[in-house]
Design a protein around this nucleic acid. Structure first.
Lengths: 206, 206
DNA sequence: CAATCAATCTTGACAGTGTCAAAATATCGT
DNA sequence: ACGATATTTTGACACTGTCAAGATTGATTG
């Protein structure tokens, strides 16, 4: 409710809720023009504050990006929980298929945030926040648990181990996401067919 | 043979083979410290030339990156051709498995170049060179042809269409590559098992 | 050989970036 | 009212990509 839309807030010396405001606006900017278009200075400008003010709330540009990524994890974690709740109503294979569809749609809708969650920018440089590290680990655990369940119920084709299955299945999802997110596959109209093909590859063919 | 190792070459005003030299050194620098660590100025410095000299051989930093990416495509194209030649000696499934292993190994060995080939930096901004565009398209055609062959021979599980199969299979490879390249999966020792699991998912279970 | 021309490289400049140190300002507890 | 603390600002530095104008060279003519 107090979501600081940089006009209505009184321009005090003390902003009041700069942390949230920065996070919100930064996410906005990234969604608009990509991760590269976000500069600390432009962000500060847009929030109506001086260049270095953000540094008192985020140690780094990196810390800011990690915080944004973390919110992304919260989103997918929520999605996963929602799906696991309605497990009684439909067949498990159906639910899995649907999850994959929405996962990839969501990843595309928030492309830039997704890139932050799993991109080299944060992970390859070895700079993920403790907090981000934990949240991502925790999310993979949730995913693993679901896949184990699907393997037990003979829905998924299980190979060497359910862990490997979970890793590879997710790699497939991730690969599809990246190809679309990064603009390598551009025909959005083919996406549904591709997802179905992928899911068929994963499901135990009966 | 004339591969300019920035010491032995006489420091003339005219470098002699600056284009090649830039390409070579830039690739080197990227392999060392990642795409982000390559700056035009440092590159020029290392080659022993002034800041803006590279701009007479590459329109942009982007153009330079595209050229490097292109060399990466040449490499994988070569790999694919080598594999398709020895098709008689072993079972097709075996050859496919082996290809996937070497593909992913190669991608990891040249992580940064791989990132250039398929990363957002070039593709998402819509800035691939004509030349790069063609070469990548051509490579996917080669891949598609092989997959079609493997589908015909009942080696691969064919879904809606061989095109979709080719796309999804490659997405799976790509997903695995990225997870390791970007430092999300770090246990290198699990890679072989994961690749096997992935291949099993793609092969027609007999 | 000398003179012109095109190819190649350099210097200077500008706007933009992340971030540190020191100074300024506001808020709060006493 | 005052001093402590939290918050923000100004100034500065080194770095980035790239443009415009000038300097230097090698090749091509007469």
């Amino acid at each position: 409710m107090k979501q600081t839309d940089s006009a209505s807030v009184s321009r005090n010396y003390h902003h009041g809720d700069l942390y949230q405001s920065l996070l919100f606006t930064a996410t906005e900017m990234i969604a608009e023009g990509g991760t590269e278009s976000l500069s600390m200075r432009k962000l500060a400008d847009r929030v109506g504050v001086s260049r270095t003010a953000p540094y008192h709330h985020f140690k780094d540009k990196n810390a800011l990006l990690c915080a944004i990524a973390e919110q992304g994890f919260e989103r997918v974690e929520k999605l996963l929980h929602e799906v696991r709740i309605k497990e009684e109503s439909e067949s498990l294979a159906m639910i899995f298929t649907q999850y994959v569809h929405t996962y990839i749609e969501l990843a595309y809708k928030h492309r830039e945030q997704y890139d932050l969650m799993f991109g080299r920018e944060i992970w390859r440089n070895g700079t993920p926040t403790e907090s981000l590290h934990n949240r991502s680990r925790q999310h993979f655990k949730s995913w693993l648990k679901w896949i184990e369940h699907l393997c037990d119920e003979k829905v998924l084709h299980v190979g060497d181990s359910t862990l490997r299955t979970a890793q590879v299945c997710w790699a497939t999802l991730h690969g599809l996401c990246r190809l679309f997110n990064d603009g390598i596959y551009t025909e959005q109209s083919h996406l549904d067919e591709m997802v179905d093909t992928a899911v068929n590859m994963m499901l135990k063919n009966t």
